[in-house]
Each structure stands twice: as structure tokens, then as C-alpha cells.
Write a protein that binds this DNA or RNA. Structure first.
Length: 111
DNA sequence: TGCTTGACCGACG
DNA sequence: ACGTCGGCCAAGC
């Protein structure tokens, strides 16, 4: 499988994440068909051309945190975009139980 | 070619 | 709540 094909599959998954929800790198990789390759998802996003207008901000790490160091432009931008769509941060952390995107039929979303 | 790095993760102490 | 380690694998030098 070519590199572009691999990235295309990852991008396709990211595009499916609804507004106001988030997914982890590992989850995105897994659903794209690459289990245990979280880094691949991160790398694909890193390589995303800005003009693609992908909802990249909806991908966060498994700890419920933004993967950029706090205080960087990237961090601020991602956090702003997420808060704009209603995602709440508590101590720099997103509650995955509440905001993680799940395909219908899986795990309940609690309040 | 080989080595290091990284928008990662899960397990373990 | 830390820190460490091994697994992953594409990029970049």
C-alpha cells in the first residue's frame, strides 16, 4: 500500500468525526485499518496540506489532552477551535467518556 | 545505509 | 500522579 493511500484512509476517518466530538490518534489509526499505529495517524496529520480543511483539531491523544505543548500557537489554535464547537476542557483535559466519538451501536455517552 | 525523531499508546512500577 | 519501556513506522538527515 502506498503512502498516499495510507494517508488518504486516515484522512477519511478524520473527516467523519462530527463537530463537537473528538477521537484519539490510536482510534483513528485503528478505524483506518492500522491497529496499534497511533503514530501513523499523527504523522498523517502532520503531513496534511492546510488547504485540505480537515477537522484536525478533533484528534487528541489517549489521555484526553492536546498533543502540542501548552503555550504554543498550535496548542492555542486547537483548543480554541474545539472550545468553539462546544468541547469543554477541565484542567487542560477533555473528558473522553463524554466527548469521544463512537460509531453508533457502541458504548453509551454519559453525562 | 543507518540512526534519530516524533501531533502516539499501553503496561508496569 | 509521575517516569520508563517496548512497540510502531514514516521522515529526515
Amino acid at each position: 500500500m502506498s503512502r498516499n493511500e495510507t494517508y488518504a484512509r486516515i484522512w477519511a476517518v478524520v473527516r467523519r468525526i462530527p463537530r463537537g466530538r473528538v477521537a484519539t490518534y490510536g482510534q483513528v489509526a485503528h478505524e483506518a485499518g492500522f491497529p496499534r499505529q497511533a503514530r501513523l495517524a499523527g504523522y498523517a496529520l502532520h503531513q496534511t496540506p492546510p488547504r485540505m480543511k480537515l477537522p484536525w483539531q478533533r484528534v487528541i491523544n489517549a489521555q484526553g489532552r492536546i498533543s502540542f505543548p501548552e503555550g504554543t500557537e498550535h496548542y492555542d489554535e486547537q483548543r480554541r477551535l474545539l472550545e468553539e464547537e462546544g468541547v469543554l476542557f477541565l484542567n487542560g483535559r477533555i473528558n473522553l467518556a463524554r466527548y469521544q466519538w463512537r460509531r453508533s451501536g457502541e458504548a453509551p455517552v454519559l453525562d
